[in-house]
Design a binder for these strands. Structure first.
Length: 598
RNA sequence: GGCCCCGUAGCUCAACCGGAUAGAGCAUCCGCCUUCUAAGCGGACGGUUGCAGGUUCGAGUCCUGCCGGGGUCGCCA
């Protein structure tokens, strides 16, 4: 099944072909001038140059050939050679009925599915998520859903930051803060082989003494202190090294940290509709690093330079000077890039992905370029198999990364809580407090709040940085998430009433201008999906669903449904049901869900 | 300093391979609830697309230079 735009494009392509011109010129797009036409083709203008002919002349000949198509109600040449097309009502109606019959409402499906792994979110042990994590999480989630929807075999990996110096810091801080914890760690680390009861006792002690709040409190203080005091920093480094070489006590407390944090993180992620298939941690590739480094050395890729082990990744045709990837620092420790390289290897072995997409801050593009090139040199990945999808930063009004008025970071949980409070208030105003039971009320409030937060971000192109404005993230009017949900809810309400009145769905007969506009937008869904996929840009979906919601709102205002005569009513009901289905698919691609009422 | 990204309405952002009159939302102002949810709809106001050149029949989009902002440039992640 082809969308109307493509069908018109094909008709135009064969018209160009018949004139001995490149069929690619027949590309048809939505009209820039909706007052004049539904669609347009600009091919005659481009053709004029190569064919050395008057563009209007070419356009007229194309137009004449297109005029005979049953898809076209009117065709005319305008300006320097634009071909303006008005779709026939029968074509629009037929298209609407075809979309109605299609569970995917026209969306394409990949011919040859691939296995795609999406690396996103990037939460860390003991670091509570703040608004900066929002982009990575929701853009990544949307990119994942998009691939899954297209039929790819998709894996979302949180890529848990559970290893490295930060762990040593935490251990040091916890030991210092609690003498019982310190003693337990000491005893376990020095014991040649701790017994089961000893281990169980330690686990119980950690559980009783170290809570999430302790980590939140201790970690920032420890990090600050390590910067200021070399002695403290060295202690933390020693702890890190001992943990990595397997000290029993450190391993146990580290497990406790990770478990504690992960449970809290998963709660926050779930609230935002984000679910990972994998929680592979940086620790999982720890054992791969040693052999990998040996292999890299044996292959002659890694060699010593200024005391460190490096891989040169610069190329002759590089415009910029790309520094080498440092595999082992001069102090003998593995680096960020080492872990990432080992992760490439790990994923290759476990999942054999055709494509790995890293949804990570744009500022790390050089880092990923280094890692990807090193991975290619080592034979761990083919060119193009690893892709960095970067995103811009969330800035404050000063143009610097966002900070609260107190200078700290805004916790993600606080943002959600803020949105929830506003959402509850608004729902109560609408009188839903009495209609819904408390649980349904809360669930609805969460859907609305999450829609506000996520849409405010996803509506922006991922690559550009933007100014974080709290009001925008908790606004329910205009181009917002709640507006989208609201239109969906109106349709649900309409369909409920219709079911009571015995209305049935379809067939669709397009007549009114608002109906035409709605169907033309419904027809544009495949293009939006393709654009979003090719650019890994969820804002294309966001833009589409917003325009669709607007088109529905206009239709709703202009075209009575339930009070219309039966054939008209059933047509409009089907059109509304179709709109709802496409909206819900698109919302789901963004990670949003419409409630039943709001 | 080298390299990369950005500069669009008062504010926040869009703009499909270079196409017509550069679009939304917010804010401001004016209308619309005896009909399906007004979290809505219609209308008005608002622009030298940072500046200067160039390529082109045609430039927000491509090229050069300049100005302004951000990022990054070997042992943090």
């Amino acid at each position: 099944m082809s969308d109307l735009k493509s069908a018109l494009g094909q008709a135009a392509a064969s018209a160009f072909s018949a004139l001995g011109l490149d069929p690619a010129l027949g590309r048809v797009t939505l009209s820039d001038r909706p007052d004049l036409a539904d669609f347009q083709c600009n091919g005659a203008l481009a053709a004029a140059r190569t064919a050395k002919r008057n563009p209007r002349e070419i356009a007229a000949e194309i137009a004449q050939r297109l005029g005979g198509s049953p898809l076209v109600a009117a065709v005319e040449v305008a300006g320097p050679g634009f071909i303006n097309l008005k779709a026939s009502s029968t074509a629009l109606s037929a298209r609407a009925n075809a979309l109605f019959a299609d569970p995917r409402t026209g969306a394409p499906m990949r011919a040859t599915p691939r296995r795609v792994l999406i690396d996103y979110g990037g939460p860390n042990v003991a670091k509570e998520m703040h608004v900066g994590h929002l982009r990575a999480s929701i853009i990544g989630e949307s990119v994942k859903r998009l691939h899954r929807f297209l039929g790819d075999d998709t894996l979302g990996d949180a890529h848990f930051g559970d290893w490295g110096f930060q762990m040593g810091l935490l251990i040091t801080a916890c030991a210092e803060a609690d003498s019982k914890v310190a003693a337990t760690l000491e005893a376990l680390n020095s014991a040649p082989e701790p017994s089961e009861p000893e281990i169980e006792a330690a686990i119980a002690l950690f559980a009783a003494h170290i809570h999430l709040e302790d980590l939140d409190r201790l970690y920032p203080a420890a990090a600050a202190r390590a910067k200021a005091e070399t002695d403290y920093r060295d202690r933390a480094r020693r702890a890190t090294a001992e943990l990595q070489s397997g000290a029993a006590g450190y391993r146990l407390i580290w497990r406790h940290f990770a478990g504690l944090t992960r449970a809290a993180l998963e709660r926050d992620f779930r609230a935002l509709g984000i679910v990972f298939d994998l929680w592979r941690g940086e620790s999982d590739v720890n054992d791969l690093i040693g052999p990998m480094v040996e292999e890299l050395k044996a292959k002659g890729l890694a060699f010593e330079d200024q005391g460190a082990l490096i891989i040169r990744v610069a190329r002759n045709d590089d415009k910029r000077e790309l520094p080498p990837l440092i595999v082992v620092s001069s102090e003998g420790s593995a680096m960020y890039g080492t872990t990432d390289l080992a992760t490439v290897l790990d994923r290759k072995r476990l999942y054999e992905p055709d494509l790995v997409i890293y949804v990570v801050d744009q500022r790390q593009s050089d880092h990923f370029e280094q890692v990807f090139r090193a991975a290619e040199l080592a034979g761990y990945a083919a060119p193009g198999q690893l892709v960095h999808v970067g995103f811009g930063t969330m800035n404050g009004v000063d143009g610097k990364p966002f900070k609260t008025r107190e200078g700290g970071v805004l916790k993600l949980r606080d943002l959600i809580e803020l949105g929830l409070a506003k959402s509850r208030e608004r729902l109560a105003e609408a009188g839903l407090g009495g209609e819904l039971d408390p649980e349904a009320f809360e669930a609805t409030a969460l859907k609305v709040a999450v829609a506000a937060i996520k849409f405010a971000d996803l509506a922006n192109f991922r690559g550009t940085s933007y100014v974080f404005d709290l009001d925008r993230f908790s606004s329910f009017e205009g181009k917002t998430g709640p507006y989208l949900l609201y239109q969906a809810v109106r349709i649900k309400s309409l369909l409920r009433r219709a079911a009571e009145d015995g209305g049935s769905l379809g067939p669709i007969a397009v007549a009114e201008p608002q109906e035409r506009e709605l169907v033309i937008l419904l027809d544009a869904f495949p293009s939006a999906v393709e654009e979003a996929e090719s650019k890994s840009a969820p804002n294309a979906i966001a833009e589409h669903v917003y325009r669709l919601a607007q088109a529905f709102a206009r239709f709703y205002a202009a075209c009575p449904v339930l009070s219309a005569r039966p054939d008209e009513r059933d047509s409009r009901l089907a059109l509304a049901a179709l709109t709802l289905r496409q909206m819900e698919i698109a919302l789901d691609l963004l990670g949003l869900e419409a409630p039943e009422r709001m």
